[in-house]
Amino acid sequence: MEIRDFVATMPENLAIQGDFESSAPSNIALVKYWGKLDNQIPANPSLSFTLSNCKTITKLGFRPIEPQDDFSFDFRFEGQPKQTFRPKIQQFLERIFVYQPFLKHFHFFIDTENTFPHSSGIASSASGMAALAVNLMRLERELNPKMTEDYFNKKASFLARLGSGSACRSIKGEVVVWGETKSISKSSDLYGISFEEKLHDNFKNYQDTILLVDKGEKQVSSTIGHDLMNDHPFATARFDQAHKNLASLKTILKNGNLSQFIALVESEALTLHAMMMSSNPYFILMKPNTLEIINAIWKYRAETKTPICFTLDAGANVHLLYPESVKDEVLEFIKKNLVGYCQNEHYICDEVGSGSVFLS
Rank of each mutant, 00 (worst) to 15 (best):
K88V: 11
L14I: 15
S52I: 00
F108K: 08
N39K: 14
N13E: 14
F62S: 09
E94M: 01
F108L: 12
K88N: 03
T50Y: 07
F109T: 12
F62G: 10
R63Y: 11
R63A: 13
L47E: 02
Q83G: 00
P42D: 11
F109N: 02
R76W: 01
E78Q: 13
E94Q: 09
P101Y: 07
F108E: 06
L47G: 06
P42A: 08
P101W: 04
D38K: 13
E94K: 12
P45W: 08
S48G: 12
S52G: 00
N44C: 11
I89C: 00
L47Q: 05
P42W: 08
G79N: 06
H105T: 00
K36E: 15
F20Y: 15
I96W: 03
P81I: 07
I57D: 00
L93H: 12
F71S: 06
A43I: 06
L103E: 05
L93K: 06
P42F: 06
T50R: 04
E21F: 03
T58D: 06
I65C: 06
P101C: 08
F20G: 01
A15D: 15
Q40W: 03
W34G: 09
F102H: 06
G35R: 11
I89T: 03
K32R: 13
G61E: 12
K88Y: 15
L60Y: 09
I110C: 04
Q80R: 14
Q68L: 05
L14N: 06
A29I: 04
I57Y: 00
Q83P: 02
P101H: 03
S48K: 07
F62C: 09
F85L: 04
V31E: 08
P45A: 13
V98I: 14
Q90V: 08
S46V: 12
I96Q: 02
F92L: 07
L30P: 05
Q68N: 13
R76D: 02
L14G: 09
F108V: 09
Q40F: 10
T56P: 02
K88T: 11
Q83N: 11
L47N: 03
F102D: 12
L47M: 14
Q100Y: 00
I89W: 00
H107E: 13
F85A: 15
E66N: 12
L60R: 08
G18Q: 07
F73Q: 11
F97M: 02
P81M: 05
L30D: 08
V98K: 09
S48Q: 07
Q83I: 10
Q83R: 09
F75L: 15
P87V: 07
G18D: 08
G79Y: 10
